[in-house]
Amino acid sequence: MIVTVTPNPALDLTWHVAQITPGASHRVDTGVARAGGKGLNVARVAHAQGGDVIAVTTAGGATGAEFAAELAASGVPHVLVPVAAATRRSIALVDEALGDTTIVNERGVTPTADEWQALMDATAIAVRTAGVVVISGSLPPGAPDDLLARFIRLGREAGATVIVDTSGPALLQAAEAGASVLKPNQTELIEATGIDDPIAGARELLHRGAGLVLLSRGADGMLAITADGLVQAAPPAALAGNPTGAGDAAVAACAVLMDAGIYDPVRIIRRATAWSAAAVLMPLAGEIHPSWTDLEHDITTSDPKESS
């Protein structure tokens, strides 16, 4: 069982634009609204690929009602904790001419102390039968300093593998709390550690208590770094599309394999890189292209030198 926890969910709004011109007015077809946030994207991908998943998150206000309705229609098993503040929105503008995406994320409003406790209680119940707990996404401004560590502790006390995908100081806190896996990208890693070299930055997270660091490097693929070594994986070619959910797909791959008892970093990074690349080919976050098996077959892995 995989339990995903999304402390700061969003109603994801996506529009495809023929070409974005700054300062200009654009006409587009009707956009798509989906229940999102990184943990929800992970849950969607894992569920679609046959994973046993429960998504735990919050919902509030008018956007929360739309969020809840879409999530119910998706078929992804979930537990929603009601909160007073409206669920935030995330806006993605996909420029079809350039093949890239501009994203505007609302920061979100932090729940009350009682609402945080309700989310913690719901998580504690869900993780009792979990093999893997995934905690993904940002924390809203004003969230308790120990919030992430408390979620990680719930997972660890249940005997689960805990995967965390976050950024900023929370990334260091997750390492110190003993997260089994951390999945930053290069920018997040540098910002959190202050170390420019990605391998040295990943080793700092290991030193602080993490077990495995999966480092996203965009079109250059991924690195898997453990105390015993590192593996590099690269897709066969650069792919144009919507990269919004690529990192979430990588986390889903890791979660599904670990829930099946597979912990080999080489197998994990190959699958994570393939699912990440396959996510870029899809118009919306939370989906991967069925060609992922071909992509995985063509992925190359290597052992880069420490000095690279």
Rank of each mutant, 00 (worst) to 15 (best):
M1D: 13
V5E: 12
P7G: 12
D12Q: 13
T30C: 08
A33W: 00
G39H: 10
V45C: 14
V45N: 11
Q49V: 00
D52W: 03
A55I: 04
V56H: 09
V56A: 11
V56K: 05
T57E: 07
G60F: 04
G64R: 14
A69R: 15
A72S: 15
A84I: 05
L98E: 06
T110F: 00
P111A: 11
P111V: 06
M120H: 15
V127Q: 14
T129V: 02
A130L: 05
G137I: 00
L139N: 13
L139R: 12
F151Y: 14
E157R: 15
A158S: 15
V162T: 14
D165V: 02
L171S: 13
L172V: 03
A174V: 01
L182H: 08
N185W: 08
N185R: 06
E188K: 06
D196H: 15
P198H: 09
A200Q: 07
G201S: 10
R208K: 10
G209E: 03
G209N: 12
G211T: 09
V213D: 06
L215M: 05
L215R: 02
S216W: 02
A224F: 01
Q232L: 03
P236S: 15
P243T: 14
G247M: 05
A249Q: 01
A252H: 11
A253K: 12
M258F: 01
G261A: 13
D264C: 02
V266H: 09
R270G: 04
A272D: 08
L284F: 10
E287K: 08
I288K: 11
I288T: 09
P290A: 11
W292C: 04
E296D: 04
H297D: 10
I299P: 05
T301H: 03
T301M: 05
T301R: 03
E306W: 04
